[in-house]
Computed example of a mutant assay.
Amino acid sequence: MRTTLRQADRYDQRVDRLGCVTERLVRAQRALADHDIDALLVTPGADLRYLTGYHALPLERLTCLVVPASGEPSLVVPELERPAAEAAGVDVAIRGWQETEDPFALVASIVGEVDRIAVDDHMWASRVFALREAIAAEQVLGGPLVAALRMRKEPSEVEALREAGAAIDRVHRRMGEWLRAGRTEREVGADIARAIIDEGHETVDFVIVASGPNGASPHHEVSDRVIEPGDPVVVDIGGTTAAGYCSDSTRTYVVGGEPDPEFVQLYDVLEAAQQAQREHAGPGVTAESVDRVGRQIIADAGYGDAFVHRTGHGIGQETHEEPYIVEGNTLMLAAGMAFSIEPGIYLPGRFGARIEDIAICTEDGLDVVNRTPRKLVRLP
């Protein structure tokens, strides 16, 4: 579906609200110079939104931001997409191309003779190869360079993440309206998806309703399984707000009866592990140490092999981005970094549980944006 004027107006408002993208481009150019890279090429996706405020559609026609290490950036767009780019308030020169023109040759003419160019990590392979033919230069990944910029959120971005967190909290607080024994996961998931929009998101990114044994699959979505009395149910949900920032929160519920006693024991361990991770995380500690703190508690209780994923992921204009909270990541957490803290315990064929909050590192601590109860919630 084409971008409508109404959508473009929202994008324009987002740019006004989230600060001047010009400064982001300046910082990107400094990073290019620091890494001896002559230009950065970015096609539609989160990196383009971050650097320009333009939520371009990923069409077969080439849209490409050209950021030289020095000089003025340009946005190459199909001529028929120029109105949408202009309506989005893009603060760079727009270079349109006609249907019979070669857009890769246009990008090459803007870049000029260079030695090294960076391409965004999510660029289609066909684009990468076409640019390789058009520009005689070494290609390197641009993702790490842009990720380093995006990882430290600006104050306006922090506020957008807080609002997204509050919106998904409102959905969790309404769970008793839909989640009950006798309904299928799919039925409950449909109600949750509608509520995600109603409570302040523009899009639904994912809905996981994993009941009983399905809770042991961390990325189960929904199925036609009927929820039974006493079932634990993992509900992991998220969306994107009009500001372009994501929510992601998981709570585990028990519906319509008493759960297996071992599940209660397991959940107590999980709650203690997640609390310890929240208390440990903050500026000056490593990402891997946050993972290690909770993982040790879970292992000491005998469930080490049942914690099968990393503790968390960064979040912003994408649900999953840097920094990743996992063993081996020695990155020191710093103010402005936003990430999930979501340990889980999963017993195949039986049940599982996960608790997830989005947290933002501050100068002197941690701001946890999700405020719904973390204790096991029992619903009628």
Rank of each mutant, 00 (worst) to 15 (best):
H313E: 04
H35T: 09
A281R: 03
A243G: 11
E113T: 13
S74E: 10
R150Q: 07
P261H: 13
D300Y: 06
E60R: 13
V222L: 04
A147D: 15
T241I: 03
A273M: 01
D102C: 11
V171I: 06
A359F: 00
L179T: 06
L41Y: 08
Y253T: 10
L5T: 05
R378Y: 15
T286R: 14
E154F: 13
V21D: 09
M1T: 11
V293Q: 00
Q29L: 10
V233P: 01
T52G: 02
V188F: 04
A181P: 12
R295C: 05
A359T: 05
G256V: 12
L179I: 03
A181G: 13
L266S: 06
R350V: 10
L161Y: 08
V146S: 04
Q275D: 14
G143F: 01
G212S: 07
A28P: 02
E279N: 14
I117N: 01
Q7V: 00
E177L: 14
Y346P: 02
V67R: 00
P373Y: 11
D248G: 01
E199Y: 08
A33M: 14
S126W: 10
I237R: 05
V269T: 14
F206T: 06
G336M: 10
E138A: 14
V204H: 11
D198W: 04
G53Q: 11
T43K: 07
L65F: 05
D291H: 10
R95P: 03
Y11R: 13
P218G: 06
V264L: 15
D34M: 13
V209M: 04
T252D: 09
E279T: 15
I196Y: 08
D300H: 06
D231V: 03
E199P: 02
R374W: 05
G142R: 09
A160R: 05
L149R: 02
R132M: 12
E81K: 01
A210L: 02
D191P: 03
G89C: 05
L32T: 07
A108C: 12
L75A: 04
E133A: 15
V128I: 14
A334R: 15
G19A: 06
D224P: 09
A272M: 12
E363I: 10
G304Y: 05
R17K: 14
A108K: 09
E279H: 10
V128A: 11
T250Q: 01
R180M: 07
V226L: 10
P323A: 01
R183Q: 02
G294E: 06
F339K: 03
A210M: 01
D198Y: 05
R292Y: 02
Y253S: 03
L57P: 03
A160Q: 06
V269F: 13
H280C: 08
A273Q: 01
